[in-house]
Design a protein around this nucleic acid. Structure first.
Lengths: 248, 248
DNA sequence: CGCCCGCTTGATCGTCATCAAGGGCGGTGG
DNA sequence: CCACCGCCCTTGATGACGATCAAGCGGGCG
C-alpha cells in the first residue's frame, strides 16, 4: 500500500537511519506507523510505558512534567527530524514526562522490535543509537549547568545565542520557535520574568524584539553580556536613559 | 600476568558485563587498564576528549563543573560499581564536567575499541549499554525536575528518602555518602542552607542528625512533608508538634 | 465590533545566597 | 596528655533575584 511506501520514505530520510540498507528500512517500516496529532492534543501521559519511540515529521511536540499544583515545566521542544522516547523504551520504566502537540503534527511511531532487530543486524546503527542518546544526555547536562550556575538573564542569552549561531556571523535575525510562555517555561522562568528580561536586553541595545521576531545586531556583544544592569532607573539618570529607539 | 588476570576478574564482576563470554571479557581486558587516584586528585578536566570510559572499583569520584568565578557544582557522585564517561566517549565531543577523587580510589579505564568490538559481537551487550545510558538520562531528568519545581527542602527530603528506601520499611538509619558541603552542592544548595534545612527537619522530629549519621524514624511521614514551616513557630497550629527546644 | 488570549508592566513578598563570626572535632606536635 | 591549629560545620543578619498577585494593553478571530 502507498501508506507503507510513504513510511519507508520518511524513515529513509531520517538522519538516524541513513546507514541502513533498503531491506532493513523496509523491515523497520513494518514495525512503524504514522500518527497525526492536532494542536493541544496529548500523546502520552507521565507514567506511561513505551513500547517504541517517536519521530517528528512535521509540527512541534512539547515534553514537560507537571507539579501536583498544576503548574507545568517544559523540558524540551521537539521539531521536525527530532525524536523522543528512546530512553524510556530502552529502560522499560514509566516515562517521567508527558507529551503534547504545540501545533498540528505528524509523527512516526517506531516499535521497539524493529529497533532491536536493526541493532542486531547492524552494529553501526547501534553506535548511532548510542551516540544519539549521548547527545541527548549532553544536552540535559547543559541544562543542569544552566539552571545551577547561570542567572535568568544568562539563561535567556544562552538560549538566544543558540538560536542565532547558524546564520551570518556578526548579526542574526530569527523567530522564537514557540510562544513566549512555552519558552519561558523551557528556561525555567515565569512569563513575566522572561518578558522583563527581553525588555531590558532590548533597552540595552543588545537585541530588538518585534513579536516573535528577534534580531541580534552584534552576537559577540550579546555573548559578552554578563550581569543585568537594573532595568528601571532607580538612580534617575542611568546610562540607559536616552538609548531608546522608541521601539517605534 | 597477574595484573591482567586481576582486571579480568574486576570486569567480569561488573553488572554491565555479566552477559559477555569469557573470551570477550578477555578481549575487553586487553583494552583496559587500572588507575589509582589519591584523594583530591583530578582525573580529567572539563573540555577533555575521552577515548574510553571509567568504572569505579573502589572509592568515590565527583563529577562537577565550575563556573568562571570559581564556584563549583557537583553533578554526580559515583561509587563502587558505577561508571562515567560513556556518553562523552560515544559522542566524541569535549567533556562538560571535570572529575575528582573524593577519596583514594581505584578505577578501571576501558578503551572505546574494546566496547565497540563487544557491541559488534553481542547485540545483547549493545542493548545493555543503551539501557545504561537511558538510566543515566532518566536520572538527569529527575534532577531537572527537582531543580525546576521543588523547593530546597523538598530536594533535601527527596535525597534523604533515596538513601533511606533500602532498609527496613518504616524507619531507617544511614550515613551521608560524602561531606555535607559536597552533598549540598549536589543538591544545588549552599552549605549554610543545607545545614539549616537539616536542622529544621530535625527540629520537626522528622530526622535525627549526628555527624554524618542520619536516622529517619518514620519514612512515610518524612515523604509526606511538604512545605517548610518557618523554623520559628509563627503559627501555633504547626504540625511540627512539641519538639521545640526553645532555640532562643 | 468585541471578546479572548498572549503578553507586558507595576508592586510586593519569599526564598535562598551572601557575608560574617563562632563552635566542635580530629590531627599534630610539644 | 594536653595545647594548638585547621577544617568543616553551624548560626545569625542582611540583601538580591525572581515569583506571585494584579491590572492594563494589543491584536487576531469569530
Amino acid at each position: 500500500m502507498s501508506k507503507q511506501l510513504n513510511i519507508t520514505r520518511l524513515l529513509a530520510d531520517l538522519p538516524l537511519f541513513q546507514q541502513l540498507r533498503d531491506s532493513e528500512i523496509a523491515q523497520l517500516a513494518m514495525e512503524s506507523r504514522e500518527i497525526k496529532l492536532s494542536k493541544g492534543q496529548i500523546l502520552f501521559q507521565k507514567g506511561d510505558l513505551l513500547e517504541g519511540f517517536y519521530v517528528v515529521v512535521e509540527g512541534q511536540i512539547k515534553l514537560a512534567f507537571s507539579s501536583p499544583q498544576g503548574q507545568e515545566k517544559v523540558v524540551s521542544i521537539v521539531g521536525p527530524g527530532g525524536s523522543f522516547g528512546e530512553a524510556v523504551m530502552f529502560m522499560e520504566k514509566p516515562c517521567p514526562v508527558f507529551t503534547q502537540a504545540l501545533e498540528d503534527s505528524h509523527l512516526l511511531y517506531i516499535a521497539k522490535r524493529g529497533i532491536f532487530t536493526a541493532i542486531e543486524h547492524d552494529s553501526v546503527f547501534a553506535r548511532r543509537m548510542l551516540a544519539g542518546l549521548s547527545m541527548r544526555l549532553h544536552g540535559l547536562i547543559q541544562d543542569v549547568e544552566d539552571y545551577s550556575l547561570h542567572s535568568s538573564t544568562q539563561r535567556v542569552i544562552g538560549f538566544l545565542l543558540q538560536l542565532a549561531d547558524k546564520p551570518t556571523k556578526g548579526h542574526a535575525t530569527f523567530e522564537l520557535p514557540a510562544s513566549k510562555q512555552v519558552i519561558a517555561s523551557r528556561l525555567n522562568l515565569t512569563p513575566e520574568t522572561f518578558s522583563r528580561i527581553l525588555h531590558s536586553l532590548s533597552q540595552a541595545g543588545l537585541i530588538t524584539v518585534k513579536g516573535k521576531r528577534i534580531t541580534v545586531p552584534d552576537i559577540t556583544r550579546l555573548s559578552r553580556f554578563d550581569h543585568a544592569p537594573p532595568p528601571c532607573a532607580k538612580n534617575a539618570q542611568a546610562p540607559l536613559s536616552e538609548a531608546q529607539t522608541p521601539l517605534e
